[in-house]
């Protein structure tokens, strides 16, 4: 209810802003729901005198559609990496020159100049996460170090495996395992993927993207696809201490949400200030503590809640590749759909 109220109030505020009663020194921030800590916005206002108005959305598609329709009145938004790529291509973003900001030095070198924004012109990091697989170590003595375990399970895991119902992430994991390029358009790659998934299916007990933490904690499955945030929650739950989030040598699949400035933003300078402000370790820690996701600012660790700071689920070990999902072409999307529908026919 409170959230609804906030959304209603902020959209009312925004429509005022659009109607010309726009006060200088205000920032219209468009972010995912449950993703923005109030204390962060208060702290920003205290330090800069700029008031932040928050409005929320629940999917990248919604955000893209809004920005495409133009004239949104937003000064900041938070797309995921694959949609950020589309927005750059479609010319929907203002340049922010993040690389030259004072606090940019805190960003982990692994996440500087990412593929979706190679010169760090448009985006600054917000939160990130990974997708991999988990094993119940007390029920199954599996090998966490390779995706072979997940795609070609043996022994006790056969018939006790849970896999996501939607293909995106599992498909990217399969690319990593088979050494294929992301967004491949080669027919032989598609055939290899199809063979891999058909081979995995007899071992699968359930295809579902919901309730994965519950099923691994109550032992319905002994191995499962999992998001790191979910699996952090599963492990810290009662009876979940033996849930192990795996970092296979082939890599994990990642998502990365960033702050961007939509084209036509009225308060670009204030938006840039906010970007720089968020990259400061103690501020970034506020966001992670609130959202329970990882971030790309290693120095934020001392400011994190202890259970977050120590969570292996949130820390990708050095040397483990992270493959970030990309926005792929039509041929790829159609092929993946075909493989998946055939699999579940």
């Amino acid at each position: 209810m409170k959230k609804l109220l906030i959304a209603a109030v902020s959209s009312a505020v925004l429509s005022f802003a659009a109607s010309g009663a726009y006060a200088a020194g205000e920032l219209n921030f468009y972010n995912w729901t449950d993703y923005t800590p109030d204390d962060l916005l208060e702290k920003f206002q205290k330090e800069t005198g700029i008031k932040v108005n928050l409005d929320t959305y629940d999917s990248n598609e919604t955000l893209l559609a809004k920005l495409k329709s133009g004239a949104t009145g937003y000064d900041l938004a938070v797309p995921s990496q694959n949609f950020l790529e589309i927005m750059v291509k479609e010319g929907l973003l203002e340049e922010a020159n993040v690389a030259s900001m004072p606090n940019y030095k805190y960003v982990d070198a692994r996440f500087k100049n990412p593929t979706w924004d190679p010169e760090q012109k448009y985006s600054s990091p917000w939160q990130m996460g990974t997708t991999s697989f988990v094993i119940r170590t007390d029920l199954y003595d599996g090998d966490c170090s390779s995706l072979k375990e997940f795609f070609e399970p043996t022994g006790k895991a056969v018939g006790q495996l849970g896999v996501f119902k939607t293909p995106e992430e599992v498909m990217n994991q399969a690319h990593l395992y088979l050494g294929q390029e992301m967004c491949t358009e080669k027919n032989e790659d598609f055939k290899a993927l199809q063979k891999l998934f058909e081979g995995q299916k007899p071992a699968v007990k359930i295809y579902s993207s919901e309730g994965t933490p519950d099923r691994i904690v109550d032992g319905t499955v002994v191995m499962s696809s999992g998001w790191n945030g979910d699996m952090f929650n599963a492990r810290t739950k009662e009876g979940g201490t033996t849930v192990k989030y795996c970092y296979p040598k082939e890599g994990v699949v990642g998502w990365f949400d960033s702050l961007v400035i939509p084209k036509g933003a009225k308060n670009i300078e204030a938006a840039k200030k906010f970007m720089d402000f968020v990259m400061k370790p103690e501020n970034m820690a506020l966001v992670s503590n609130f959202a329970s996701y990882a971030n790309a600012i290693p120095d934020s660790a001392p400011f994190l809640n202890p259970e977050l700071a120590d969570a292996p689920e949130l820390k990708v070990p050095n040397g483990i590749p992270i493959a970030f999902g990309q926005s792929c072409g039509e041929k790829y999307i159609k092929a993946v759909d075909k493989i998946w529908t055939k699999l579940l026919q």
């Binding site: 939607t166 299916k201 359930i206 295809y207 579902s208 759909d337 998946w340 579940l344």
Partner: peptide, 16 residues
Amino acid sequence: GGKKLMLGSLIHLQFA
């Protein structure tokens, strides 16, 4: 368990 698609899930998959 989603191992066998049904019409409802198939339609959902197409829009998602």
